[in-house]
Amino acid sequence: MSQVMKVEIQRYRPELDKEPFWQSYDVPYTKEMSVLEALAYIKDELDPTLSYRWSCRMAICGSCGMMVNGVPKLGCKTFLRDYPQGMKIEALANFPIERDLVVDMSDFIAKLEAIKPYIIRETEQTPEDGCSIQTPKEMEQYRQFSMCINCGLCYAACPQYGLNDKFMGPAALALLHRYNNDTRDEGKEERMAFLNAHEGAWGCTFVGYCSDVCPKKVDPAAAIQLGKVDSAKDYVIAMLKPGE
């Protein structure tokens, strides 16, 4: 037995509209239906002009981030049954809207790239050098932060990024922490300037919403606070050894 839900979607068609507007669709649904499937129904059956991003449908590609009743969500991991009062869907907050639910994430991607999110070695290792062994404790220092799927929900949750997009933001700082705390990495010095800046860890006021909305249970807020501790130590060392 299927029910019908009124789904309101914020539309924006750059060639026609000055600003976004709300449009309402009646979507028949069963209890298994995700928001992503509802959007597919709308596009296939009701309105082919609707634009949205998606790929894997299983919460790993990070493409279908959107605001559902004002909360950042992955469309594929959010179900209509949990919104008996109806739902209002709009493009992921804090990013420029390209069209309908599609946002421009290039600033976010640039920030992820900037912090050098890869293992840096002073001398290249070859397979002949063997494995890089880590203890469970060493691995725990970064493991959860490596689960990030770059969906951008934490940026939509972060008022500091919304207020000032110079701020590096949760995912980039969590990734920075992830590589700085990997025993295989030797590139910490190249990343500290990002962490130490006003736009780095110090732009965070510990709202904590980034960790709350993360669909992969990564805790960027924790990474940033631990980053502040790292940066504070670095600050003291720089004071003791000026000119270095």
Partner: peptide
């Protein structure tokens, strides 16, 4: 392309319980 940038204003924190 004509990306639309939403303004946060000063009352953003009233729109979300967590905020």
């Amino acid at each position: 392309r004509k990306p639309y940038v939403r303004k946060m204003g000063s009352t953003w924190w009233t729109k979300n319980n967590f905020h």
